[in-house]
Amino acid sequence: MAQALKLEDLEIMRTLGTGAFGRVKIARVKATGEFIALKSLKKQHIIRTKQVDHVASEHHILRITNHPFLVNMKGFCQDPSYLYFGMEFVPGGDLFTYLRKVGKFDSTQAMLFAGQITLMFEYLHSMNIIYRDLKPENLLISADGYLKLTDFGFAKIVEERTYTLCGTPEYIAPEVLLNKGHYKPVDWWTLGVIIYEMLAGIDPFNDDDPMLIYQKILKCKYQFPRNFDAHAKSLVKHLLVIDLSKRYGNLKKKAEDIKRHRWFKNLDWNELVNKNIKMPYVPFLPSAGDTSHFVDYPDSYSNAPALNSAHDPFINWNS
């Protein structure tokens, strides 16, 4: 259960990543020695870009979710300039960096990662949460080699459909581009993109021009490279489908159609979710709090001291 944090109880260290609203730093809890990832969000920028509802939604979703393949929230606080989310520190870096380093994965490794993503979405969708921003940068690698999904800024609890245009160009589902309303199937489309990218080393709709990317997506125009695993190709074809009535994950059996696909024939799903399968890649971590798997970022600002947030009206942490 996430608790209130106090910045003075933390030793805030180097930056792990940056984004439009702020940055993520590694921090050590002074009393326990535990390392966490401290995500700071600029209030002024959030208000100016009218993202208050998105941030409140992210905070709520982080509080109500708990799954071995999701990054868990440890605590939260705020000061006059920033909101702070204390998150589980995942030391192995992100899947994007690892995939670019090795080029592409073999079928077994891609299948194990895809299986974990399938379980992430099955869990989130059971709570009517759509994620909407799956990409390798948002998949972190744990010390045991398993994945953790992070960055819930675009995630949303939806009962039927929503119309917000959001996501990363190469991964956006066609129904989002058409602005006719979208729902859980968007996540299964992105799973298809990720499977293709893990096995080919490049995403299926790649282009330097975003508009051409969108055109390819709307036409579902892509080609498989030679030596692409035949079973994985079959699953990708069932996921990258414009017709929602035919897209795997959105049929009567929902995620079961994906889990029962022949690419996953030899996968024990219970062993996977319980982390009893040894991962093909386990990051080398010489010490607790090791950050060698993250890119170096310059520190452009220092964190202000924490104030008592009980009367700060910006966000009600108890809602």
Rank of each mutant, 00 (worst) to 15 (best):
K6A: 15
D9K: 01
E11I: 14
G17P: 11
A20T: 15
A20V: 14
A20R: 13
R23H: 12
V24H: 00
A27G: 10
K30E: 09
K30C: 07
F35C: 10
S40M: 14
S40E: 03
K43E: 06
Q44F: 10
I46V: 15
H54I: 06
V55A: 05
A56R: 15
S57T: 14
E58N: 08
H59L: 08
R63Q: 15
N66G: 01
F69K: 02
F76L: 06
F76M: 01
C77L: 10
Y82T: 02
G93Y: 11
L95T: 11
G103K: 10
K104A: 07
Q109C: 06
F113T: 10
Y123R: 09
H125I: 13
N128R: 12
R132A: 10
R132I: 09
P136F: 03
N138Y: 03
L139D: 00
L139V: 14
L139C: 11
G145F: 12
L149S: 02
L149G: 01
I157G: 02
E159M: 13
Y163F: 14
T164F: 07
E170V: 02
Y171W: 05
A173M: 11
G181I: 15
K184E: 14
V186K: 10
I195C: 15
L199W: 11
A200P: 06
G201E: 14
D207L: 03
Y214N: 13
K216N: 12
L218F: 07
F228N: 02
A232I: 09
S234L: 09
L240N: 03
L240E: 08
D243V: 07
Y248E: 02
Y248N: 02
L251W: 01
K252F: 04
K253F: 05
I258R: 00
W263A: 04
W263L: 14
N266F: 02
E271W: 02
K278R: 08
D290K: 08
D290M: 01
D296V: 05
A304L: 13
P305E: 10
S309I: 04
S309H: 12
F314R: 04
N318Y: 14
